[in-house]
Amino acid sequence: MKEMYTITAFSENHIGLLNRITIIFTRRHINIESLTVSSSEMKGVHRFTIVIEEEEALVKKVVKQISKLPEVLRAAYYQNDEIVYREIALYKISIESAIEKNLEHLLREYNARMVDIQKDFVIIEKTGHVEDTEKLYDILRHFGILQFVRSGRISISKQKKELSSYLSELPINEYVKA
């Protein structure tokens, strides 16, 4: 059965690694639902968060193929109930409709906030799961959304010793000159 899985990988910060990782998905014709890459808490180490909808047996194979890349430090996969995950959405609304309707009430109700106010528009920010940001989108649609953007997923596992905890134990990779 296909389910949502979140894959986390740590890698060296080298040019081209993103490409190497995505090739593993594309060659198996797997669609990436969301992909977030950023530096981790450790200098020079990048963190990939990749969401796919697939069967677990296939996810396992893919994770092994990611781990196998010589510049990937670690990779693992999780189901939604094993992680805390979030994404962020930004909504741009015209100032007229924001004033006209009771926006303040709405923001409180949906635990969203206004992050910028300009002469012509306001920008609203909401973090949560896809369903949450989508729900707010549906409501704000009636205000007339000028622009909307959603980030990829970021996640942290609920295990006590998370994958990243081993980063602190990593030796420094140095090409020691003779």
Partner: peptide, 12 residues
Amino acid sequence: YRYKKIKSIRSY
């Protein structure tokens, strides 16, 4: 120029 063979790499 200085050369040193690699014995291990932390990600590998």
